[in-house]
Amino acid sequence: MWAFIHKLGSPKWFYALSARLQPWFWALAAVLIVIGTLWGLAFAPADYQQGNSFRIIYIHVPAAFLAQSVFVSMAVAGLVFMVWKIKVADMAAAVMAPFGAAMTFVALFSGAVWGVPTWGTWWMWDARLTSMLILLFLYLGVIALRGSFASRHSGARAASVLAMVGVINIPVIKYSVDWWYTLHQPATFSVTSSPAMPVSMWLPLLVMVVGFYSFFIALTLMRTRNEILRRESNKRWVKELFQEAQ
């Protein structure tokens, strides 16, 4: 196990392993997102109260899940980098931040657009909405902080610390709908009870959620590989990858 973790920390080994894993995650993501989109948009029944605006759930919930999961992954990667000095962990954390910010924006945007026909307002300083907005600012802060140091190592350390501190916002987001029940409805999925929706509504949602997670994994693998090429461009093994026939 330790040998495996140690190997995973080696950019060369990670580059080889991720090359084999990547196509599977891309394929899974593409298939599930296409199926989930068609299913959710055209085949799932309309909600008896909300009508067809309810279909926004099929992107809103996966994006909101990812917005939080990406932040936790980034904080864990930051911790691994700080404790064990594993460079690949920092490369992964660096490429996760922009995607996490994008997903947070998507969750906020789709929620606002959904709020107009459903709540009659696109924004309210509700606890869930506000804590998600704070999450977006945390992502932007992590990205800005990383870029604001002359040395890459200092930037990486500062970004890791902010990610680890900022992770406190995640339980606040999760429990905000229970602690301050103002506007946003409570969770759709829970581990302990069955969903309040019929199967024909939540199954396509599950497909979309798994599809979005696969997309995140595939994208992170691909961009971490890019980051390895960028940072390790002086290493012999990288040069040998692109040796042209003489």
Binding site: S53, I59, A102, V106, V116
Partner: peptide
Amino acid sequence: MGGHAPYVWSAWGVTLFFLLAS
């Protein structure tokens, strides 16, 4: 979309844009 076209399609459009752009 039963009169909800602007909401549904704009939410979907923004999402697909970010996925494809990534």
